[in-house]
């Protein structure tokens, strides 16, 4: 039997921030891109153990699992529970996909655990730092805790989730993560 493969994380060793903001790569997580029509929402919510939100710019969480509304038929489901080797891959190994498949309703659940990576931005200046590249209104009034959006950060597409008054999770595709982290770092220094 061959050696087991080991993981290399896209932002391994990245660090940055300032007195008023902390930047850190998030831990690996299981993620699926979930697509389905309105008629499948109830069944999929039950199967995944999280109520798929149907309002724009909202998310719902249950335990380690968060479902982010990205479009009328699209969610990003992130499970931050402990990741073990066999559960982080694809196909049958992916519990989320299996759970969704069990519903029997028409949908698409695709593993994007490794496509995306995330950066955690936290601290009193978190919103200002993000506004260095993100044109959204990130005031608490307009983007409350739990709000999420697929938006722009500098020149790239990201999914932004507010996890606390001063905490954000920025999800992006892995090859853009170096740029995203660099722009966050620069933006943090520029405050």
């Amino acid at each position: 039997m061959a050696d087991l493969a080991i993981r290399t994380l896209p932002l391994a060793g990245a660090h940055g921030g300032s007195a008023s903001v902390r930047l850190e790569p998030a831990q690996p997580a299981r993620r699926i891109s979930l697509r389905a029509g309105a008629e499948a929402v109830a069944a999929l919510s039950t199967a995944l153990g999280v109520n798929l939100p149907t309002e724009p710019r909202t998310s719902a969480s249950n335990d380690s699992r968060t479902a982010l509304w990205l479009g009328p038929d699209e969610w990003l489901v992130i499970d931050e529970g402990a990741v073990d080797l066999n559960d982080s891959g694809t196909g049958v190994a992916n519990g989320l996909i299996n759970a969704a498949a069990g519903t029997g309703v028409a949908h698409s659940a695709t593993d994007v655990s490794h496509r995306n990576t995330a950066i955690l931005v936290s601290g009193p200046a978190a919103a200002d730092v993000l506004n260095g590249g993100c044109p959204l209104d990130l005031s608490l009034k307009a983007f409350r805790v739990g709000a999420c959006a697929r938006t722009l950060f500098g020149k790239i597409e990201v999914v932004l989730l507010r996890t606390g008054e001063q905490n954000f999770r920025l999800e992006c595709w892995r090859s853009f993560s170096e740029y995203a982290f660099g722009l966050l770092r620069q933006s943090a220094e520029d405050l």
């Binding site: 087991l4 896209p10 196909g91 593993d111």
Partner: peptide, 26 residues
């Protein structure tokens, strides 16, 4: 190597060819 993979037997060279797809971190 213990990782769930998708293996393609395809060729863009005209030789026997495989494209080994593994989750990116691996």
């Amino acid at each position: 190597m213990g990782v769930p993979a998708r293996l393609f037997r395809v060729s863009f060279t005209g030789e026997v060819g495989y494209e080994v797809n593994v989750p990116a971190d691996y």
